[in-house]
């Protein structure tokens, strides 16, 4: 009798791992769907401003990013702000040309809070010339109250 009992106990300990791939695949698909692959290296220093009236980007995959701030690879204090579009530096006058395609899609403006409005105004004018009129001023969510 005691022999049988022991055998039963051993059987119960085994856990089936057959469904493990399914579980992992489920997780995998979840991450594949929510993922936004970070393919850009930001080459400017950006401290975003804070704002309360912020909304999410509608379609992060389709938006173009413009980064404005002092360049990262300099030791100089108060270096002049540079403009980076997607993954390369662009001169002020060339902004319109480099974002002219994909009309109608949103442009996310990530601007360092220390930058002066002169540069931002110039970029805005270029965007209007390129008919990229939907703009998101990226900011950190600020909670008041």
């Amino acid at each position: 009798m005691s022999k049988f009992k022991r055998k039963k106990k051993k059987d119960e300990v085994r856990i089936s791992t057959a469904s493990l791939p399914d579980i992992v695949f489920m997780l995998l698909f979840f991450f594949m769907v929510v993922t936004v692959i970070r393919q850009k290296e930001i080459m400017v220093k950006i401290h975003l401003p804070q704002a309360t009236e912020v909304t999410k980007l509608e379609d992060p995959r389709k938006t173009d990013h413009i980064y404005i701030g002092p360049p990262r690879n300099t030791r100089q204090q108060n270096a002049a702000a540079v403009i980076q579009i997607n993954d390369k530096f662009v001169k002020k006058e060339r902004v319109a040309a480099s974002i002219a395609k994909d009309k109608g899609e949103t442009v996310a403006l990530q601007v360092d809070k220390g930058v002066t409005m002169g540069v931002v105004t110039d970029v805005k004018l270029e965007m209007r010339k390129a008919e990229r009129l939907k703009v998101h001023y990226i900011a950190h969510q600020e909670n008041r109250e």
Binding site: A51, E53, V54, T55, K56, L57, P60, A108, L109, K124, M127, R128, L133, K134, V135, H136, Y137, I138, A139, H140, Q141
Partner: peptide, 8 residues
């Protein structure tokens, strides 16, 4: 990312 939406 979140931001202030503006139409130029």
């Amino acid at each position: 990312e979140k931001g202030i939406r503006v139409k130029l």
